[in-house]
Design a protein around this nucleic acid. Structure first.
Length: 898
RNA sequence: GGGCCCGUGGUCUAGGGGUUAUGACGCCGCCCUCACGAGGCGGAGGUCGAGGGUUCGAGUCCCUCCGGGCCCA
């Protein structure tokens, strides 16, 4: 490989953080090949670049990264979330922090179980629990690998040595410890709770597993009680009358207010229930009187909890009514419905029936309507006040996201149910004594444990029994993921207390009520502290049509499609384009614009490398011209601005500022202005321009590094390779700091004037149909400040003369524009009249006003003195000259001899 | 039904009391300028969702309505 050797001698490339020598070509290509460059750096960058070191003396910055659910594809919504994290991580790292950007995987859960059943054509109960779990683990591993590839391709600066996987014993041991500790603190208990149940599949199912099917049903009007105090209720579930525990009306319903508090007998039974008031009752539905049963639907559960009603669990797991239903015992719901309606009709209690539309919850699998039954479940106590108070101590970005959590907490009606009747999840480390029924919770040192195959290491403490029944219920997945900030800080074995709370939680607003809420709850319960100092919330990614991405709408875009067409950096720039917290619509236009910027930046690099051949030394500083000082001053202000935006997570603003400086100030103006000097100037003339070229490229690549890590690295390396300097990755450099020596307001004014003059003359050439580099005979400039004309001459291809005095040009006041922000508060409603008076002045009066600094006008009967500085004055210059064109800009008069 | 957010040229968007409303894409015209034609220069295009209110002055603040989005019932 001769080529490689040449590179070695030419540039001495030997960068400790790269896996191999970079193959830089001596000539820079015209086109930026994002694919090629990005794939090269994915291979060259070493993971160690981003390893976090607990012993580092730098301030620590720890990110509680979301562990995604390993579905197998890292989607565009994840991309947005992770881009934000990576912008922050890279920025903080360059700002001198020791950054931890760990990565976890939230493995457990129903979708994987379903997928595994599908792939293997089995039901989870067809194989031993352990075998089923093994299949899930295997499937999940593959998915994780696929997602990791996408994440690496997107250039995320993840510390892969800090990877955690919740389905592995090392992690779920922590989950189990957290369970045990909270149980021992009395924060976890076992109790009755309604659950959704499929009578055909004989299993409880999660709310997420319910499908809703539109259908028709009959609304039955049924009379409860007799005589004066009888009421007519409307129900679609007459078979649940034996489960009726109350009757409810709306508190403001005039028709029924007198009934509140009274009791009424429930038909088909021998007991009475109370008539209560509740605002959730819809007076428009049916008769406006509703019966509450345990349980017809979720609303019943809500009422049951709220009003602390008794429980009449008439429905058994077999889907039949039990002894509480009296003579209807043993009937299925359908049979019971017919029989009860028959009986009620005979008694004259069935007043009428009408057909209505109804959404029935059905089992996603067998489409059988689901029922709500009551079962023993495990709960975590929810201390609403405590959690709210803690959540207020966290900085929410954007702030209004806190109110989502707040309203959620305030509306919470019951504790967190953490038990699931599933398999692929963290086992609940509990047994029941077969002899006395005592609950035996595992000791910490026994963990991790699977109570369905492991047994307690001690006899029952209550009765000494040695036979146990292992808990088959498992934990809600949120029990795994709500301890992530603890897990990444080494809890419980080697907990870095001093690094807690962690610095940042970045996550989507869709899981504020779950992940954010549960994490705060658990952190308080386990260590008594908030989990993070700040939480940055990202929005959802919508399709190009502004609707949520979904298969049925066909508006899904996958990251790999974008990467293949435009590369990861372009996708990352798109991710930066929105406001943090807002939903962001995907946009190919934005991607294309981003990739054009990359090409523009590449062209600038190409131009830079054409001229810059060695590292400019400081002696260039003394030779700087106005144009040079101007762009350097602007550059430093850009650095300040970008830094401020980054500190406040305003990525769009930061990137926009970089892009517009690069393109519209630097490329379109500065480079055009210095071109002539670079091509045909003397060494002393070139020197300062080269200094600028080098400095700007050096600063811009670092500013861009968090956003476009690949492009930035490539340009950074090419620039240094060109000047023969060994450098480490741009991602290990410090973020630019504004060099105050270059901030120079006067130079900026002169630079702006140069820019103004150059573009005015270019516009003039354009209007005349001349080529922009066509020669002009002579240009004379009159301007309020003195300016270096040499670059103007070069840029315009003309001789330039600076006039000391305004040539025979007459002045005329073109416009007097009132500054309303000054006049408004001073003269209130008289402003309009004043403006009218000013506009009514003659040309001479106006000129006199401008020259004398004040004028007196009459408004009605009143005389008002007006100051010049209360107005913006526009002065027009009138020239009598011949054979010249006069161009007037804001700050200069340009006389062109074509 | 509840909570939160958002309606600005054709499309997307900046701006959160001050005159003439930002930029991008698209559109129209001109220029093959030695880094870039996926470029440069110039231009047309908006009664800021509707109605009311506060104010000397309202995309901007308040109220109502209409439309959209997300989350939760």
């Amino acid at each position: 490989m001769e080529f490689k050797i040449w590179i070695l001698t030419e540039s001495g490339q030997s960068i400790k953080y790269f896996n191999q020598i970079t193959q830089l070509k001596p000539m820079i290509e015209k086109e930026y090949e994002a694919q090629e460059v990005e794939e090269k750096w994915v291979k060259l960058w070493k993971d160690e670049m981003f390893y976090f070191d607990w012993n580092s003396k730098k301030p620590h910055y720890i990110i509680d990264t979301p562990p995604p659910y390993p579905t197998g594809s890292f989607h565009i919504g994840n991309t947005l979330n992770w881009c934000y994290i990576d912008f922050i991580a890279r920025y903080k790292r360059m700002k001198g922090y020791e950054v931890m950007f760990p990565q976890g995987w939230d493995c457990h859960g129903l979708p994987t179980e379903v997928k595994v059943e599908e792939i293997h054509g089995i039901s989870k109960n067809d194989v031993p629990r352990e075998e089923f779990r093994r299949l899930c683990v295997e499937f999940t591993k593959k998915n994780i690998e696929r997602m990791k590839r996408t994440m690496r391709r997107l250039g995320f600066s993840i510390d892969w040595s800090k990877e955690y996987i919740t389905m592995y014993p090392e992690y779920y041991r922590k989950t189990q410890i957290s369970f045990v500790r909270m149980f021992n603190k009395g924060l976890i208990y076992r109790g009755y709770h309604p659950v959704v149940f499929c009578p055909r599949c004989q299993t409880t199912i999660a709310l997420a597993e319910i499908e809703y099917k539109k259908g028709k049903t009959k609304l039955n009007y049924i009379r409860f009680g007799d005589g004066e105090d009888s009421v007519i209720i409307a129900t679609t579930r007459p078979e649940l009358i034996p489960a009726c525990v109350a009757i409810a009306v709306h508190p403001d319903d005039e028709r029924y207010r007198h009934l509140i508090g009274k009791k009424v007998k429930v038909p088909t039974t021998d007991y009475e229930v109370e008539i209560i008031a509740d605002e959730d009752v819809d007076p428009e539905f049916g008769t406006g009187i509703v019966m509450i049963c345990t349980f017809g639907d979720k609303q019943d559960v809500k009422w049951w909890k709220k009003h602390n009603l008794q429980l009449r669990a008439v429905l058994g797991k077999d889907g039949r009514l039990n002894e509480l239903a009296g003579k209807y015992k043993g009937l299925t719901t359908r049979e019971a419905r017919e029989k009860i309606l028959e009986d009620l009709a005979r008694e004259g209690r069935l007043i009428k029936q009408e057909e209505i539309d109804q959404n029935v919850g059905v089992c996603w699998r067998c489409k059988t309507p689901v029922e709500i039954i009551v079962e023993d479940q495990w709960f975590v106590k929810v201390d609403k006040e405590n959690i709210l108070e803690a959540a207020r101590k966290i900085k929410w970005v954007p702030e209004h996201m806190f109110s989502r959590l707040e309203s959620w907490i305030e509306g919470m009606e019951w504790d967190w149910v953490i038990s699931r009747q599933r398999i692929f999840a963290t086992p609940i480390p509990v047994w029941y004594c077969k002899k006395c029924g005592e609950i035996i919770v595992a000791k910490e040192e026994w963990l991790p444990v699977d109570p369905t195959k492991d047994m307690p290491k001690e006899p029952c403490p209550k009765c000494g029994g040695t036979e146990f029944e292992g808990e088959t219920d498992v934990l809600d997945t949120w029990m795994d993921s709500s301890i992530t900030p603890l897990a990444i800080t080494g809890w419980p074995d080697d907990w870095k207390k001093d690094d807690y709370p962690t610095s940042l939680r970045p996550q989507g607003h869709d899981i504020i009520r779950t992940w954010a809420f549960y994490t705060i709850l658990r952190s308080l319960a386990l260590v008594g502290e908030i989990p993070w100092k700040e939480i940055v919330i990202n929005g959802m990614v919508l399709g190009e049509d502004g609707r949520k991405m979904s298969k049925s709408l066909g508006n899904i875009v996958e990251p790999h499609e974008v990467i293949e067409k435009y590369g990861a950096d372009a996708l990352r720039q798109w991710a930066a384009s929105g406001v943090v917290g807002d939903d962001v619509a995907f946009s190919w236009k934005e991607i294309i614009a981003a990739s054009r910027f990359q090409q523009k930046f590449w062209s600038i690099l190409r131009f830079t490398l054409l001229h810059v051949k060695e590292k400019p030394d400081e002696s260039a500083m003394e030779l700087l011209r106005d144009a040079d000082r101007w762009i350097l001053s602007k550059l430093m202000k850009l650095v300040r601005e970008v830094d401020e935006h980054m500190e406040n997570y305003r990525f769009a603003e930061a990137l926009k500022a970089i892009r517009s400086f690069t393109w519209y100030e630097y490329a379109d103006n500065y480079l055009e202005i210095v071109k002539n000097r670079l091509y045909s100037g003397s060494d002393d003339e070139k020197k300062p321009a080269l200094f600028v070229l080098y400095t700007v490229m050096n600063v811009l690549t670092r500013l861009l590094a968090p956003f476009t890590p690949f492009l930035a690295e490539e340009c950074w390396q090419r620039l240094h390779e060109r000047i023969g300097e060994k450098v480490e990755s741009v991602h290990l450099q410090s973020y630019p700091v504004a060099d105050e020596r270059f901030i120079d307001e006067e130079a900026e004014k002169r630079g702006e004037l140069i820019k103004e003059i150059v573009s005015a003359v270019r516009r003039f050439k354009h209007d005349r149909g001349m080529a922009l580099n066509a020669p002009l005979r002579r240009i004379m400039i009159y301007a309020p400040i003195e300016v270096d004309t040499r670059d103007i001459a070069g840029a315009l291809n003309a001789e330039v003369e600076l006039l000391k005095e305004m040539p025979t040009i007459e002045l005329r006041v073109k416009a007097i524009k009132p500054k309303f922000n000054i006049l408004g508060p001073m003269f209130k409603d008289k402003v309009k009249a004043i403006v009218k008076a000013i506009n009514g002045l003659s040309d001479e009066e106006k000129l006199k006003f401008v020259e004398s600094d004040s004028i007196e006008v009459k408004v009605g009967e009143e005389k008002i003195e007006l100051k010049r500085e209360w107005f913006d004055i526009e002065i027009e210059k009138v020239v009598g000259g011949e054979g010249v064109e006069v161009l007037e800009t804001e700050n200069a008069v340009i006389i062109v001899e074509p």
